[in-house]
Design a binder for these strands. Sequence first.
RNA 1: GGUGGAGUGGCCGAGAGGCGAGGCAGCGGCCUGCAAAGCCGUAUACGUGGGUUCGAAUCCCAUCUCCACCUCCA
Length: 474
Amino acid sequence: MTLRLFDTATREEREFAPLTPGKVGIYLCGPTVQSSPHVGHLRSAVAFDVLQRWLERSGYQVSMVRNVTDIDDKTLAKAAEAGWEWWAWALRYEREFQAAYAAVGVKPPAAEPRATGHIPEIIAIIARLIDNGHAYEHGGSVYFDVRSYAAYGSLTRQALEDLTPAPDAPADDKRDPRDFALWKARKDGEPETASWESPWGRGRPGWHIECSAMAQRYLGDEFDIHGGGLDLRFPHHENEQAQSRAAGYGFARLWMHSAWVTQSGAKMSKSLGNGLLVSEVLEPHEPAALRLALAAVHYRSMLEYSPSTLDEASAQWARFQGFVSRATERVGAPTSTDLATATLPEGFVEAMNDDLGVPRALAVIHETVRAGNAALAAGDDAAVAGALVGARAMLDVLGLDPAAPEWAAERAGASDTAMAALDFLVRADIDARAAARASKDWATADAIRDRLAGAGIVIEDAADGARWSLAADS
RNA sequence: GGUGGAGUGGCCGAGAGGCGAGGCAGCGGCCUGCAAAGCCGUAUACGUGGGUUCGAAUCCCAUCUCCACCUCCA
């Protein structure tokens, strides 16, 4: 069975066939870096990170391009208000986004281009659109002529006459009120550094044209997948597609859109004031639990976020972690080759191939972990080893292998040497407790356990002796 | 007004004509000195009203409610 993906443009699942065999080019709309990232931003990033990991596991070489929109009206306005240079303001938030992505295990993209670094490419496309009659200049600004392009509205199935006017310029300046800006003439009061020379005078690019230019620069005239949040479909993606295709390029062959995070049914967003900052969520919870919570729901379904969401994810994460560490202690860690070549359960593969069915894939992982835990209790080491390899390989596809370096290090928040030293100290207490238990001195044994618990160290008794671990953060 | 999406057990969430996904919480049991972890078991679930069908959460009709995009938005 091959991978099938839901194409938002045709609204149906389609068999995925890359333009170039063995390779996949993906353009993902990244953040507009004008304020701190919230949980919703991470959901989109995690969803496409899982796509990348599944494609890679399936043998493809993936070029993921995720842009940074580092200039726009809001960035300029907010920076001015704060007395910052706009570029310093943008970079500050770009760093916050990068840190947030990294925290939840999103792989760094192959390219992370900034809009302001691609002015020549942007100008070239605009010039081409003017030449072929799909764009026109007025007062130093350039607009896309929506009526010149018959397919306008096709991505989102909207008729031109049903749309409300684009508000990015006075209607008088445009041939049609729904025309949108490709190039914005510099306005009085805007910083000199926020404008560039162009055939139409100084100015800066419109939002949509940036993505058309960067996608083409890194992925070519036509590429496999364009992704982004569902809220970008219109006008952003509709306009991107119109520009690029009107300019004569094939552009994206398939569109994927991730749904958003809701709270009490309402979309999480800054403008509604219900945006939950990543920094707030990560304060009491492990990043891996946040990633699990965001990945666990199918990417096209709304994800209802509540205070218990992270508690539940933490519990699941502890279950995965517990099995992996117990099983590893018993049968040893599989080699990276074992993990890379492991045959994944059929149910898992089918679920992932069916438009990334992570919820069903997760169910298979739970089944594997349950079988592994049972084998652990039964002393069936061969079965334990099999379950360990399988579970880790599947979890890795979701970016959630507990033994992967990013999570293993995060868990302890300490280096290997510090952990070894801690183990040496705790071991003495465990031995003392074992002696007390041997002589049925339960009071002493419990006192030792309680004392360790007070220090955040959890003791678990097993048939072959006690083991310790650090308590979960939450 | 236009274009879409959603209503599933206490909660989160899959599924999309016929064996009650999975997780979290709860309850009972096993294990344990007690715990913890783990395992086993445990649910009159599919917004409402009709209809089609041997059989519907899944199809059809009607209806109610909620959400989103058409402003910046992942």
